[in-house]
Design a protein around this nucleic acid. Structure first.
Length: 647
RNA sequence: GCCUUUGUAGCUCAGAGGUAGAGCACUUCCUUGGUAAGGAAGAGGUCACGGGUUCAAUUCCCGUCAAAGGCUCCA
């Protein structure tokens, strides 16, 4: 018997008899063999020490491959479980997968509270076990034997997992004293793991169901070298420095007050200026795209939300209605702007010639978010959407949708977001109770989104269960400093609300027709959008957006008058500038302006006062030499024009 | 909402069963200085809030509120 192996470069190697991926690695080089974590055999990731089929394609996976890392982290989860079992006899185990950065294991410690103070002991035990160079042994187990093993061990979680499996597809992996139900694959032995750290601990419901027991989830990460762990931890610290909650405080952008309430941000003057800048940017873009502005109140009658379906779908879990003292009328804080906008559409007869009607509003909405869910500006209870609703004829849907995609891309470009994901958010495949409207309408809407997304050429991923209750969405997702994904822009096609609000227009055939609605918010919400901008720029905003574009620094107070003249001149050219009039040396003023991330520092001393010039220093880059205030104004205008090209 | 953790000056943080401290920021004065921190003095805290234990609590215990990391949820 021979084994023929095709390697990724296309070359074919022939071996006498049965061989493993590890054998193949050794035949290539000892160095490679020392680094092989697992192997991709005919497209499937498997243990490196399993026998290969007679004919196969083979890719050897190392730490440089995502799948190699995943193998190592999954194996690390097993070792962590082994350490936990040694220290906490009787602990029961849920699931322990590899994740994007590391791994976790959900553990039932049997009523014991395990927290950060326990980490050191677990880490020490882990290192002791890993250094033993225990091998991971795979074994196929019959269902009855598998049930028997975990019944004796008393682990009801594993038993529940086994219930969902069929005879013949159950495998156990054992390393040292620890045996686990596991599909694999695993690294050859534990000696590959050289560095380990428990990152944090969290509660996690068994099978993600909040009605079931909460297990303790330990998050950890491992590396093949201690140095890599150290670097990773430094990187995490650096990421924390970009946290919008920290930077927002340092730059005086926003604050929170216990008295006002959790999740209700207070915008300070600089942060409010930033918002205004974003709003006027969007207003300009929208005016060009044929939108009209409307304005609606922050509350609406309960009947409005009964019509829209909000009351039915989310009434119980939202801020509760408030009533008027005399008449007892019920009003709700608006969770969305669309019902109000539907009523504007319905306020008079509409002709097909009026469509598309694009109603835009920077509408502030209020949503009840569970207290544990609040997160700085990224998840709040009151926020302002750059909302608009496009009422159009069915034949206009695709074109309008494509135009909105362009608008979203323009926004992402102006803020230099290069890495975003476009996600098509569809209905839950099973649970349809969360949604309103007919199957027919949903199919039409889902098709419309997929067609438009395909035509736009966007790369998209499909997620089920992420749709709004009235329709599917195209969502634009961006990551924050710590890699968490947030939804920013969103575009939604809706056949349902026009039906519920009985919206109509008169067609060219003089008959009544139902319009289609597109809901869209390119920023999503100003709050979350600003949070993500802060983390992406670390507070160094693009010139067009930054609250203060230039600060004028007189060398001594003799030149304050001159500095003020320059400031007035720049302001008359729409440059946002101020003067640092403090009684400090120039070095100090520069340092403070640098830390405040003001893009330009304009220095005025004796030389400049005489020559009617300014010395320009660019933030983080340094001295640019001297020029006249008008030359500086040109410099600023050119840069802004470049940043906003396309608007 | 749930699990783990945290809450001391505007900010970052030390501290201890006997009613508090540093650095920065702030105020005043001196200094008028050319590209990342000039000097001196001063002011500033119900130690998150509410109970309890104690001769004595900011410190120990309980509750509430807020914040952090997750889970669930997310119009």
């Amino acid at each position: 018997m021979k084994t023929n192996v095709t390697l990724p470069d296309g070359s074919v190697r022939s071996f006498e008899g049965a061989v493993t991926a590890m054998d193949v690695a050794k035949s290539i080089s000892e160095g490679l063999a020392r680094n092989v974590l697992s192997a991709k055999v005919n497209g499937e990731v498997r243990d490196a020490n399993r026998t290969l089929p007679e004919t196969c394609t083979l890719a050897l996976l190392t730490w440089n491959d995502l799948e190699g890392k995943a193998t190592m982290w999954h194996s690390s989860a097993h070792v962590m479980a082994e350490a936990v079992e040694a220290l906490y006899p009787g602990a029961k185990f849920g699931i322990g997968p590899a994740i994007e950065n590391g791994f976790y294991y959900d553990i039932d410690f049997g009523g014991r509270s395990v927290g950060e103070h326990d980490f050191a002991a677990i880490e020490a035990k882990f290192k002791e076990l890993a250094s033993k160079k225990e091998t991971f042994t795979r074994r196929e187990v019959g269902k009855t034997d598998a049930i028997k093993y975990f019944t004796e061990k008393g682990d009801e979680y594993k038993l529940e997992l086994i219930e969902g499996l069929n005879d013949g597809e159950i495998t156990f992996y054992q390393q040292g004293a620890f045996t686990d139900l596991c599909r694999g694959p695993h690294i050859p032995d534990t000696s590959f793991i050289k560095a380990f750290k428990i990152l944090n601990v969290a509660g996690a419901y068994w099978r993600g169901d909040e009605k079931r027991k909460q297990l303790t989830r330990l998050y950890g990460i491992t590396f093949p070298k201690q140095k890599e762990l150290d670097e990773y931890l430094v990187m995490l610290e650096e990421a924390k420095k970009r946290d919008h909650r920290k930077v927002g405080k340092e730059l005086d952008l926003f604050t929170f007050s216990e008295k006002v309430g959790a999740g209700l941000p207070l915008w300070l003057p600089k942060g409010a200026a930033l918002r205004e800048r974003l709003i006027s940017f969007m207003k300009t873009a929208q005016e060009k795209a044929g939108y009209v502005q409307v304005a609606t109140p922050h509350i609406g009658g309960k009947a409005l939300y009964e019509t829209s379906g909000h009351w039915e779908k989310y009434g119980k879990d939202s801020f509760q209605p408030m009533n008027t003292p005399q008449e007892g009328e019920l009003f709700m804080l608006k969770p969305m702007n669309c019902p109000h906008h539907c009523e504007i559409f319905a306020s008079r007869p509409r002709s097909y010639k009026d469509l598309p009607l694009r109603l835009a509003e920077f509408g502030t909405v209020y949503r009840y978010e569970q207290s544990g869910e609040l997160h700085g500006l990224a998840r709040v209870r009151g926020f302002t959407q750059d909302d608009a609703h496009l009422f159009c004829r069915p034949d206009q849907v695709k074109e309008e949708f494509l135009k909105v995609i362009d608008l979203v891309l323009l926004v992402l470009k102006a803020l230099s977001f290069e890495s975003f994901e476009a996600q098509i958010s569809l209905r839950d495949k099973v649970d349809r109770s969360k949604y309103i409207g007919s199957e027919e309408n949903w199919v039409k809407a889902e098709q419309a989104i997929m067609d438009a997304a395909a035509e736009s050429g966007l790369k998209t991923v499909v997620e089920y269960g992420e749709a709004a209750f009235y329709g599917p969405k195209l969502d634009f997702m961006v990551k924050d400093a710590l890699g968490r994904r947030w939804q920013l822009g969103t575009i939604q096609v809706d056949y349902n609300l026009p039906e519920r609000f009985e919206l109509e227009y008169v067609g060219s055939d003089n008959a009544r027709h139902r319009p289609v609605m597109i809901h869209r918010a390119p920023f999503g919400s100003l709050e979350r959008f600003i949070a993500v901008i802060i983390e992406h720029t670390a507070g160094k905003f693009p010139l067009w957006l930054t609250p203060e574009q230039a600060i004028i620094l007189p060398i001594s107070d003799k030149f304050i008058g001159k500095a003020q003249e320059v400031m007035e001149l720049l302001k008359s050219h729409d440059i946002r500038a101020s003067v640092d009039e403090r009684n400090e040396k120039i070095g100090r003023k520069i340092r403070d302006a640098e830390l405040d991330k003001v893009p330009f520092m304009l220095i005025i001393g004796e030389k400049e006062a005489e020559a009617n010039s300014i010395s320009v220093r660019e933030q983080a880059l340094g001295d640019m030499g001297s020029m006249t205030p008008l030359q500086f104004k040109e410099l600023v205008s050119e840069r802004i024009a470049k940043q906003l090209s396309g608007l």
